[in-house]
């Protein structure tokens, strides 16, 4: 798609909501910050965590796939999220999905590894600010206290009435990534903006 991206501009699932997210961020006076991080490269990687491919892929990406459930590992521009005992979501900068897929397939060789480009399957919402926890607690049943969900944690769970992948970013102040299926993104943005009413 690289060649066509120049001629046909990309539209993200929340492109229509950008202004409302920015307004909420502005009027909250720093309490919360909401923004879409569009077009991140996302690859669903399936392999045997105990097999040879796991190490090879880790070396090729310069990032060890996390084996501890519900944790994330970050190295450089790449983040690997644990989704299951043999499943990860690899998140990288926009446009890097082809290259990442090639590197993984090459590293895996003949091992049984599945790689699926899911960059457009979900979009990413950034939820940060001192009230980020409070905002998410309106709809997320998980314990998001830093003791329970500190940096390096991720989880697949529900927020409002939709499923999300929730990632605690490196520093507590950096807040969360909320990855949501693109078709639900409009609903979730509306939900977050409504839940933020008291903070803006």
């Amino acid at each position: 798609m690289a060649e066509t991206a120049l001629t046909v501009p990309l539209r993200s699932p929340l492109s229509q909501v950008t202004d409302r997210l920015a307004t909420a961020t502005r009027t909250s006076g720093g309490a919360i910050r909401l923004a879409e991080l569009p077009f991140l490269a996302q690859l669903n990687v399936r392999l045997d965590a105990k097999g040879a491919a796991a190490e090879a892929v880790g070396l090729a990406l310069d990032l060890q796939l996390p084996l501890q459930p519900n944790t994330a590992v970050r190295a450089g521009e790449l983040t690997a999220l644990w989704l299951g005992p043999d499943e990860w979501l690899l998140v990288g900068p926009p446009g890097s999905e082809r290259d990442l897929e090639d590197r993984i397939r090459e590293a895996a060789g003949d091992e049984h590894v599945s790689v699926t480009d899911v960059s457009a399957q979900r979009t990413t919402l950034l939820v940060t600010g001192p009230r980020a926890h409070d905002l998410l607690a309106h709809g997320c049943p998980l314990d998001l206290h830093p003791r329970a969900f500190g940096s390096g944690r991720c989880a697949q769970t529900t927020l409002g009435r939709t499923q999300v992948v929730l990632v605690a970013r490196d520093e507590p102040r950096a807040g969360f990534w909320v990855l949501v299926r693109s078709s639900f993104a409009g609903y979730l943005a509306d939900w977050l903006l409504d839940a933020a009413t008291e903070y803006v």
Binding site: G160, R161, T162, G186, Y187, L188, D190
Partner: peptide, 16 residues
């Protein structure tokens, strides 16, 4: 807040 427009998630396509 699960009422009115938010009572049930609305899924939309990219062409909505």
């Amino acid at each position: 807040r699960d009422r009115g427009a938010l009572s049930d998630p609305v899924r939309t396509t990219a062409i909505h």
